[in-house]
Design a binder for these strands. Structure first.
Length: 414
RNA sequence: GGCGGGAUGGCUGAGUGGACGAAAGCGAUUGUCUCGAAAACAAUUACCUCAUCUUUUGGGGUCGCAGGUUCGAAUCCUGCUCCCGCCGCCA
């Protein structure tokens, strides 16, 4: 969420941000509500001052009579103030974050800017199969049975794919622990206020599952519970940055993605993921963002999967993100790079909603910044491995770093 | 799921209608003392917010949360949340 004071004092910049993001939100109702609220606040406080004065006097029939009158007035004004305040917050919570420095301007995905590439896409002397076909032939993936059990966009991982998943989890967690991250398995069910605080509500409500009869949602990513870990807290400066590596199953309705990535497990309702989440001092958030991306690159290099790093343009940026890098792996069957990881600096947008602050050495309390990045979206990582390591005879090589987890160098048809 | 107990400042904990933003102790910070430290003594020690002549002054709010009663609520009433204990169930 943006600071209303900031919106008031930097209205032209906020308008420019909305334009760059391609959002059509009219600021005038927000500014009007803000003004109304401040007038009502002043009025309320004046009346309260009066009440406090009266009630500090010795009670007499006159003062009690006066107090009764003031009480009624306060009631009316407070009711108005409350109403205006709620409207303001509702409207304000739809505004996306300000755009960070060096974010390329653009309308959509096609304007994203490639930052760097690593590795050469492998030349196959045969037509490479897609991961679903490979998974079927090697008995690693079963989407038909999954569909019977749970409907479309679901998957069953089997055999070596399962071993690879656990291998990846261990590999990535150990690496991140070495980088100062605390491993965490957070709840996959979260309260509405968590979804709101993380910045996904109200905007992305439709993308998430709500539990019948409960005020709980299935987390769409470990980012949701992790972002709330220090809500309503003031963290000591020397504890920052606080770095968490959260492992969690993630759930997405994928509403609005009809027809996209329908084959295989690139886009499914349920997947497992390790997420990097960092609470940091404001001045360090952009450098932390770069570091998380380096961690992504470490993994893909270890797996020897060609990738590129892309900076999202203003129009493709998510609501909470001031800046986002996507790390995309080469997918041979699609002859293109596909998003595996996504790193964002949310600056103080989430911290303001959660009221997560830190105390500086000078004794001032300020909002922290939050940075989040996939460490490994395991399903998609498996896709990249299967496709890039496939061989002409139908077998799939196991990346060297995972061989000891899988117990073999090559997966052959059973 | 049932029954019982609880929630007050960084911590422990007092406070059952007005003088309470809140006793006392601990902790922390500063000072005196000391070569230095400890001890002792003294002082300071929550946060949010609005306005302002913006290292100033004044106002408002905050005792788990939300309502209510009252001229006046940490204190009374209602609902909720969370924590602790016992029983039940259970991986």
């Amino acid at each position: 969420m943006l600071d209303i004071k900031f919106v008031r004092e930097h209205t032209p910049e906020v308008k420019k941000m909305l334009k760059l993001r391609g959002k059509e939100i009219d600021l005038s109702p927000i500014l009007q509500l803000d003004e109304d609220r401040r007038i009502l606040l002043k009025k309320t406080e004046e009346l309260r001052t009066e009440r406090n004065k009266i009630s500090s006097l010795k009670p007499s029939p006159e003062t009690i009579e006066q107090g009764k009158r003031v009480k009624e007035e306060i009631k009316t004004v407070e009711l108005q103030l409350d109403g205006v305040g709620k409207q303001l917050e509702e409207k304000l919570s739809w505004l996306p974050n300000m755009i960070g420095p060096d974010v390329p301007e653009g309308r959509d995905e096609s304007d994203n800017q490639e930052i760097r590439r690593w590795g050469e896409p492998k030349k196959f002397d045969f037509e490479p199969l897609d991961h679903l076909e490979i998974g079927k032939r090697l008995d690693l993936l079963d989407l038909e049975t999954a569909a019977e059990i749970a409907g479309p966009r679901m998957g069953i991982l089997k055999n070596e794919a399962v071993l690879m998943q656990f291998g990846l989890v261990e590999l990535v967690l150990k690496f991140l622990i070495g980088q100062g991250f605390q491993p965490v398995i957070p709840p996959a069910l979260v309260k509405e206020k968590v979804m709101w605080g993380a910045g996904y509500f109200p905007g992305s409500r439709a993308g998430h599952y709500k539990l019948e009869g409960e005020e709980l949602y299935l987390a769409g990513t470990a980012e949701h519970p992790l972002s709330a870990m220090h809500a309503e807290e003031t963290i000591a400066e020397e504890k920052l940055p606080l770095k968490y590596a959260g492992y969690s199953t993630s759930f997405r309705t994928e509403a609005g993605s009809y027809g996209r990535d329908v084959r295989g497990i690139i886009r499914v309702h349920q997947f497992d993921k390790i997420e990097q989440f960092i609470f940091t001092k404001p001045q360090d958030s952009y450098s932390q963002l770069e570091k998380t991306v380096e961690n992504n690159e470490w993994l893909l290099r270890k797996l020897e999967i060609p990738y590129r790093v892309v900076a999202l343009c203003s129009g493709d940026l998510g609501t909470v993100a001031a800046k986002t890098y996507d790390v995309e792996a080469w997918i041979p069957s699609q002859k293109t790079y596909r998003e595996l990881m996504s790193a964002s600096n949310a600056t103080d947008y989430q911290a303001r909603r959660f009221n997560t602050r830190y105390k500086t050495k000078e004794g001032k309390t300020e909002l922290v910044h939050t940075v989040n990045d996939t460490a490994s979206a395991i399903g998609r990582t498996l896709v990249a491995i299967l496709e890039n390591y496939q061989q002409k005879d139908g077998s799939v090589g196991v990346p060297e770093i995972l061989q000891h987890y899988v117990g073999k160098k090559v997966i052959v048809p059973k």
